[in-house]
Protein backbone atom coordinates (compact mmCIF):
# COMPACT_ATOMS: atom_id res chain seq x y z
CA UNK A 1 0.00 0.00 0.00
CA UNK A 2 2.86 2.28 0.83
CA UNK A 3 4.09 1.61 -2.64
CA UNK A 4 0.74 2.57 -4.07
CA UNK A 5 0.83 5.76 -2.11
CA UNK A 6 4.24 6.55 -3.43
CA UNK A 7 3.20 5.92 -7.00
CA UNK A 8 0.10 7.96 -6.47
CA UNK A 9 2.04 10.71 -4.84
CA UNK A 10 4.45 10.75 -7.72
CA UNK A 11 1.65 10.94 -10.24
CA UNK A 12 -0.02 13.71 -8.34
CA UNK A 13 3.19 15.58 -8.00
CA UNK A 14 3.74 15.24 -11.69
CA UNK A 15 0.24 16.42 -12.38
CA UNK A 16 0.70 19.40 -10.12
CA UNK A 17 3.82 20.44 -11.94
CA UNK A 18 2.39 19.62 -15.31
CA UNK A 19 -0.99 21.27 -15.06
CA UNK A 20 -0.97 23.89 -12.42
CA UNK A 21 1.37 26.74 -12.86
CA UNK A 22 -0.06 28.90 -10.18
CA UNK A 23 0.83 32.50 -9.60
CA UNK A 24 2.62 33.43 -12.81
CA UNK A 25 0.80 36.65 -13.61
CA UNK A 26 2.36 37.01 -17.06
CA UNK A 27 1.15 33.58 -18.11
CA UNK A 28 -2.30 34.43 -16.77
CA UNK A 29 -2.33 37.67 -18.76
CA UNK A 30 -1.25 35.97 -21.95
CA UNK A 31 -3.74 33.20 -21.37
CA UNK A 32 -6.47 35.79 -20.94
CA UNK A 33 -5.77 37.06 -24.45
CA UNK A 34 -5.70 33.64 -26.07
CA UNK A 35 -9.12 32.56 -27.35
CA UNK A 36 -9.26 29.31 -25.33
CA UNK A 37 -10.17 27.31 -28.37
CA UNK A 38 -7.76 24.64 -27.10
CA UNK A 39 -7.21 23.51 -30.65
CA UNK A 40 -3.48 22.97 -30.48
CA UNK A 41 -2.82 24.61 -33.83
CA UNK A 42 -0.09 26.64 -32.17
CA UNK A 43 1.87 23.46 -31.65
CA UNK A 44 1.18 23.22 -27.93
CA UNK A 45 -1.35 20.97 -26.25
CA UNK A 46 -3.61 23.88 -25.28
CA UNK A 47 -3.85 27.60 -24.78
CA UNK A 48 -2.23 27.60 -21.36
CA UNK A 49 0.89 25.68 -22.46
CA UNK A 50 1.24 28.06 -25.39
CA UNK A 51 0.91 30.97 -22.99
CA UNK A 52 3.67 29.48 -20.88
CA UNK A 53 5.85 29.02 -23.92
CA UNK A 54 5.31 32.64 -24.93
CA UNK A 55 6.08 33.83 -21.43
CA UNK A 56 9.32 31.88 -21.44
CA UNK A 57 10.18 33.32 -24.81
CA UNK A 58 10.11 29.91 -26.47
CA UNK A 59 7.25 30.63 -28.83
CA UNK A 60 6.38 33.39 -31.25
CA UNK A 61 3.26 35.42 -30.66
CA UNK A 62 1.84 34.72 -34.12
CA UNK A 63 1.02 31.03 -33.86
CA UNK A 64 -2.63 31.19 -32.84
CA UNK A 65 -4.97 31.19 -35.85
CA UNK A 66 -8.28 31.47 -33.92
CA UNK A 67 -6.96 34.54 -32.09
CA UNK A 68 -6.19 36.11 -35.43
CA UNK A 69 -4.51 39.41 -36.16
CA UNK A 70 -6.29 41.09 -33.33
CA UNK A 71 -4.97 38.58 -30.84
CA UNK A 72 -1.45 39.06 -32.15
CA UNK A 73 -1.81 42.81 -31.79
CA UNK A 74 -2.92 42.39 -28.21
CA UNK A 75 -0.05 40.04 -27.42
CA UNK A 76 2.38 42.43 -29.06
CA UNK A 77 1.04 45.27 -26.93
CA UNK A 78 1.17 43.24 -23.75
CA UNK A 79 4.68 41.96 -24.27
CA UNK A 80 6.14 44.96 -26.01
CA UNK A 81 7.07 42.78 -28.94
CA UNK A 82 6.84 43.60 -32.63
CA UNK A 83 3.60 42.69 -34.41
CA UNK A 84 3.95 39.89 -36.93
CA UNK A 85 1.39 38.55 -39.36
CA UNK A 86 -0.09 35.18 -38.52
CA UNK A 87 2.36 32.41 -39.24
CA UNK A 88 1.07 30.46 -42.22
CA UNK A 89 2.45 27.14 -41.05
CA UNK A 90 0.11 27.21 -38.05
CA UNK A 91 -3.02 27.86 -40.03
CA UNK A 92 -5.27 30.63 -41.23
CA UNK A 93 -7.86 32.74 -39.50
CA UNK A 94 -11.34 31.35 -40.18
CA UNK A 95 -14.78 32.61 -39.28
CA UNK A 96 -15.92 31.08 -36.03
CA UNK A 97 -17.75 27.79 -36.46
CA UNK A 98 -19.21 25.07 -34.30
CA UNK A 99 -19.18 21.33 -34.83
CA UNK A 100 -22.35 19.62 -35.92
CA UNK A 101 -22.81 15.87 -35.68
CA UNK A 102 -24.97 14.29 -38.32
CA UNK A 103 -27.18 12.35 -35.98
CA UNK A 104 -28.29 9.89 -38.68
CA UNK A 105 -24.75 8.73 -39.37
CA UNK A 106 -23.29 8.79 -35.86
CA UNK A 107 -22.53 5.29 -34.57
CA UNK A 108 -21.96 6.31 -30.97
CA UNK A 109 -18.29 5.33 -30.81
CA UNK A 110 -17.42 8.01 -28.20
CA UNK A 111 -14.15 8.84 -29.97
CA UNK A 112 -15.17 12.46 -30.46
CA UNK A 113 -16.13 12.77 -26.82
CA UNK A 114 -12.62 11.77 -25.85
CA UNK A 115 -11.17 14.25 -28.31
CA UNK A 116 -13.16 17.28 -27.28
CA UNK A 117 -11.06 19.45 -24.97
CA UNK A 118 -13.99 21.25 -23.41
CA UNK A 119 -16.46 18.38 -22.97
CA UNK A 120 -18.83 19.96 -25.43
CA UNK A 121 -20.07 16.64 -26.81
CA UNK A 122 -22.59 14.60 -24.89
CA UNK A 123 -23.71 11.04 -25.48
CA UNK A 124 -23.05 7.58 -24.16
CA UNK A 125 -21.47 4.56 -25.82
CA UNK A 126 -23.50 3.26 -28.78
CA UNK A 127 -25.85 6.19 -28.53
CA UNK A 128 -25.99 9.08 -30.85
CA UNK A 129 -23.91 12.08 -29.79
CA UNK A 130 -24.66 15.76 -29.88
CA UNK A 131 -22.56 18.89 -29.74
CA UNK A 132 -23.65 21.58 -27.30
CA UNK A 133 -23.19 24.51 -29.63
CA UNK A 134 -22.81 27.08 -26.87
CA UNK A 135 -19.79 25.30 -25.48
CA UNK A 136 -18.07 24.21 -28.65
CA UNK A 137 -14.97 26.31 -29.27
CA UNK A 138 -14.68 25.25 -32.90
CA UNK A 139 -11.32 23.57 -32.40
CA UNK A 140 -12.01 20.84 -34.97
CA UNK A 141 -10.26 18.22 -32.83
CA UNK A 142 -13.29 15.98 -33.02
CA UNK A 143 -13.21 15.78 -36.82
CA UNK A 144 -10.26 13.39 -37.40
CA UNK A 145 -11.16 10.69 -34.84
CA UNK A 146 -14.68 10.17 -36.22
CA UNK A 147 -14.62 6.84 -38.08
CA UNK A 148 -17.70 7.67 -40.16
CA UNK A 149 -16.91 11.34 -40.89
CA UNK A 150 -20.21 12.50 -39.53
CA UNK A 151 -18.97 15.72 -37.94
CA UNK A 152 -18.91 18.93 -39.92
CA UNK A 153 -18.12 22.51 -38.98
CA UNK A 154 -20.96 24.99 -39.36
CA UNK A 155 -20.08 28.69 -39.41
CA UNK A 156 -21.99 30.62 -36.79
CA UNK A 157 -24.67 32.64 -38.55
CA UNK A 158 -25.13 36.29 -37.67
CA UNK A 159 -28.36 37.02 -35.87
CA UNK A 160 -30.23 40.22 -35.14
CA UNK A 161 -28.77 40.05 -31.64
CA UNK A 162 -25.16 39.40 -32.61
CA UNK A 163 -25.15 41.78 -35.58
CA UNK A 164 -22.58 44.54 -35.25
CA UNK A 165 -22.54 48.11 -36.52
CA UNK A 166 -19.82 48.49 -39.08
CA UNK A 167 -16.96 50.91 -39.00
CA UNK A 168 -18.21 54.09 -40.66
CA UNK A 169 -16.77 54.24 -44.15
CA UNK A 170 -14.96 57.18 -45.60
CA UNK A 171 -16.29 57.46 -49.08
CA UNK A 172 -14.31 60.37 -50.43
CA UNK A 173 -11.04 59.84 -48.68
CA UNK A 174 -9.82 56.44 -49.74
CA UNK A 175 -6.17 56.99 -49.01
CA UNK A 176 -6.67 58.25 -45.54
CA UNK A 177 -3.35 57.37 -44.09
CA UNK A 178 -3.52 58.73 -40.63
CA UNK A 179 -6.69 56.83 -39.81
CA UNK A 180 -5.12 54.56 -37.27
Amino acid sequence: MALGAIVLGGALGYAAVRFRVEGDPLVEKIDAILPQTQCGQCGYPGCKPYAQAIAKGEAEINQCPPGGEEGIHKLADLLGREFKPLSAEHGIEKPKAVALIDEQTCIGCTLCIQACPVDAIVGAAKQMHTVIAGQCTGCELCLPPCPVNCISMEPIAESVESWKWKYPVFKLTPSRKEAA
Partner: peptide, 10 residues
Protein backbone atom coordinates in the same frame (compact mmCIF):
# COMPACT_ATOMS: atom_id res chain seq x y z
CA UNK B 1 -17.16 32.21 -23.89
CA UNK B 2 -13.39 31.97 -23.61
CA UNK B 3 -13.51 32.01 -19.83
CA UNK B 4 -16.06 29.26 -19.89
CA UNK B 5 -13.97 27.23 -22.31
CA UNK B 6 -10.92 27.69 -20.12
CA UNK B 7 -12.76 26.44 -17.06
CA UNK B 8 -14.16 23.48 -18.89
CA UNK B 9 -10.78 22.61 -20.35
CA UNK B 10 -9.04 22.76 -17.00
Amino acid sequence: AADQARDRYE
